[in-house]
Design a protein around this nucleic acid. Structure first.
Length: 414
RNA sequence: GUGAUUGUAGCUCAGUUGGUUAGAGCGCCUGGUUGUGGUCCAGGAGGCCGCGGGUUCGAGUCCCGUCUUUCACCCCA
């Protein structure tokens, strides 16, 4: 692998066989499930105006401030590669007027964040996500979480945990922030450096700090929901109860906050033990995204495919289980047979048979070895004798048995 | 952005205190007499020792830089 000439960029990798077959399984099953929930696919550009992300993700978030690939194009326009899928989706839906306010879309696409790579973190990574726009409705949130749980199920992922909490409405959040700041002020000096900064910038994040001391202090605080209106509390309760009736197990987590500014009400996260430090395979929540004069309300989630794959592999689900069967291999003895097999291969392929052959005259032994390595189930041998008789020899590679058949029959029955 | 860590054949890795033509296993190729794979046997091909500088009579081994790998922090999927 040596030369830098052939290296991809840091944190960006090429995907190819056999791993690609696991990706395809994930994508195919996701599409099928989304279809059954009535979601349509949306493909937005990878590149957007920088402002699209600034206004919806939040100007002060780390994602916007220090993780985006942002640059000016030749015309001096400020652009950025998308760091997540919601902003572009909402930008699109907002442009569709009335129908955009009540839409269900999904996407599966690469995202870009200029961070130092580590376990479960790449600079180009992939997310599968959905967005359902519409006025706040706890049933919509519950359905969205149920869909996500369903997705894990069809992929075969087990042992994951869904944690859920509420941040309340924007008004609730103001109140929560004021209260938390007031309650934390006396212990300010005991908090870690980051949290002292967070206290002013984004108090909510103090609650989910991993620092043991901060955790201790956070534990003495009342739950966030205690500062919310009755309506907001009921909203959360309805989500949880609905899910419970649907048979979806979720875990209320009072310290779950999540980092993006646009979240209101329900937020959730799915974690898996196999992942290491970045143990979240998915995150989601209800949001209210300001766009122009309008605020677009909706609910959605995003799952990191790379992380899902790590978790799947821990569950014993690996790419080699999804590589295609070996199919048929044609063996040609002599130039005449080689030419005839080109024609036969085409006929078989037109019938959907996965079919391969050596494109140069080689010894029988070499061709058989190749067929074996390719995992061929069936081998079709043709030489001078068979050409004159209009037959082929069909060999079953697993059993080692073989028989002579008419050429027409093998094409017809394939 | 901060702190560690890695880089030798297609793959997994050896390579002693710097010292001749850099090794192994697996894989690959060709054979083991007529047109039959997986096992076995024999032979063979394949290496800017990540890249660029430096020290030295001499560097895969030491020093500096750079790119990359892996991991953690911050943050997120």
């Amino acid at each position: 692998m040596a030369s830098t000439e052939f290296q991809s960029l840091q944190g960006m990798s090429d995907l190819y066989a056999p791993e690609i077959y696991l990706w395809r399984m994930i994508e195919e099953r996701a599409r099928t499930l989304f279809n059954s929930y009535g979601y349509e696919e949306l493909r937005t550009p990878s590149l957007e105006k920088l402002s699209v992300f600034k206004r919806s993700i939040g100007d002060t978030t780390d994602v916007v401030q220090k993780e985006m690939y942002a640059f000016k194009d030749r015309g001096g326009r400020e652009l950025a590669l998308r760091p997540e899928g919601t902003a572009g989706t909402i930008r699109h839906l907002a442009g569709r007027g009335e129908e955009g306010l009540n839409a269900r879309v999904f996407y599966m696409a690469p995202m870009f964040r200029c961070e130092r790579p580590q376990a479960g973190r790449k600079r180009q990574f992939h997310q599968v996500g959905v967005e359902a726009t519409g006025e706040p409705n706890p049933l919509a949130d519950a359905e969205c979480i149920a869909l996500q749980q369903n997705l894990l199920e069809v992929w075969g992922l087990t042992d994951s945990t869904i944690k859920i909490n509420s941040r309340g409405t924007k008004e609730d959040q103001k109140l929560i922030a004021e209260n938390l700041q007031r309650l934390l002020e006396p212990s300010r000096s005991s908090l870690c450096e980051d949290c002292q900064r967070r206290m002013d910038e984004n108090v909510l994040r103090v609650i989910d700090c991993k620092n043991p001391k901060c955790k201790e202090i956070a534990a003495t605080l009342p739950e966030m929901r205690s500062f919310m209106t009755k309506e907001s509390q009921d909203y959360l309760n309805t989500v949880i109860e609905t899910l419970s009736k649907m048979g979806v197990v979720v875990e209320y987590d009072r310290s779950l906050v999540r980092g993006l500014d646009y979240y209101v009400h329900t937020v959730w996260e799915i974690t898996h033990g196999a992942l290491g430090a970045q143990n979240a395979i998915a995150g989601g929540g209800r949001y209210e995204i300001a766009l122009g004069k309008k605020g677009i309300p909706g609910v959605g989630f995003a799952m990191g495919i790379e992380r899902v794959i790590t978790a799947l592999e821990a569950c014993g689900i690996t790419a080699d289980q999804f590589v295609p069967e070996g199919g048929t291999w044609l063996i040609s003895l002599g130039e005449a047979a080689l030419a005839e097999n080109m024609k036969l291969a085409r006929e078989l392929r037109n019938k959907g048979v996965r079919c391969g052959m050596e494109l140069a005259a080689k010894s029988m032994k070499a061709q058989m070895r190749k067929a074996n390595r390719e995992g061929a189930e069936k081998v079709i041998i043709r030489g001078e004798d068979e050409l004159t008789k209009g037959t082929v020899i069909v060999k079953n590679m697993e059993e080692g048995s073989q028989e002579e058949m008419n050429l027409e029959d093998i094409v017809r029955n394939s």
